[in-house]
Simulated scan of single mutants.
Amino acid sequence: MTRFLIAAAAATVAFATPAVAKDRVFTHEGVTYAYTATPTADALVLEGKASKGGKFRLVVKGDWVNGYAGGARVSFRAPKREAAGAVLVAQR
């Protein structure tokens, strides 16, 4: 779950620009992810739950993503957008 959640966070980081929290839901390989993306003064907070794997909370600040997914601490460099608009997925 964590690896896929990282990809979802990458997509959110690359394309999220709302000024208020926005509910998001998607399903991948039978697992449904529901979360909010809430911008703060200097970060983007992603909080939610996966139907398998539990809760997650990721804080995107600058070039880094820190938080918890499925009870495990995660930290990784936020992916950058390519010129064509595609997202590079962070690898562990």
Results as ranks from 00 to 15, higher is better:
17 T>R: 14
33 Y>D: 07
28 H>V: 11
80 K>P: 00
83 A>I: 10
86 A>V: 07
8 A>W: 01
16 A>Q: 12
3 R>G: 03
69 A>T: 10
78 A>T: 12
5 L>Y: 01
89 V>A: 10
35 Y>T: 05
36 T>N: 09
59 V>F: 03
53 G>L: 05
79 P>W: 02
25 V>A: 15
8 A>I: 15
31 V>T: 15
54 G>A: 09
89 V>K: 00
39 P>Y: 09
61 K>D: 07
66 N>C: 04
82 E>I: 00
26 F>Y: 06
53 G>K: 11
14 A>G: 15
42 D>S: 15
86 A>K: 10
43 A>N: 09
9 A>P: 04
12 T>Y: 01
44 L>T: 12
38 T>M: 06
53 G>F: 05
14 A>M: 04
13 V>L: 08
78 A>N: 08
44 L>I: 15
13 V>N: 06
51 S>N: 07
31 V>W: 02
7 A>E: 12
79 P>A: 14
74 V>G: 04
2 T>F: 00
63 D>G: 10
49 K>S: 07
1 M>C: 01
33 Y>T: 07
70 G>K: 13
6 I>N: 01
62 G>I: 09
85 G>E: 11
45 V>E: 09
58 L>H: 05
6 I>F: 01
10 A>G: 15
33 Y>W: 15
27 T>C: 02
83 A>D: 11
82 E>Q: 14
33 Y>N: 05
63 D>T: 14
49 K>I: 01
34 A>E: 12
54 G>C: 08
10 A>L: 02
76 F>R: 05
86 A>S: 11
54 G>L: 05
58 L>P: 02
30 G>P: 10
16 A>K: 03
15 F>N: 15
63 D>P: 08
63 D>I: 05
9 A>R: 01
68 Y>N: 09
64 W>K: 13
56 F>T: 06
58 L>M: 10
88 L>G: 08
32 T>A: 11
74 V>S: 07
19 A>T: 13
8 A>E: 10
37 A>D: 09
19 A>D: 13
61 K>H: 08
48 G>F: 02
15 F>D: 13
57 R>E: 13
2 T>V: 07
44 L>H: 03
49 K>Y: 00
2 T>H: 00
38 T>N: 05
70 G>P: 12
1 M>P: 01
78 A>K: 04
28 H>R: 14
2 T>I: 08
37 A>C: 09
32 T>F: 06
75 S>C: 08
1 M>F: 06
4 F>T: 10
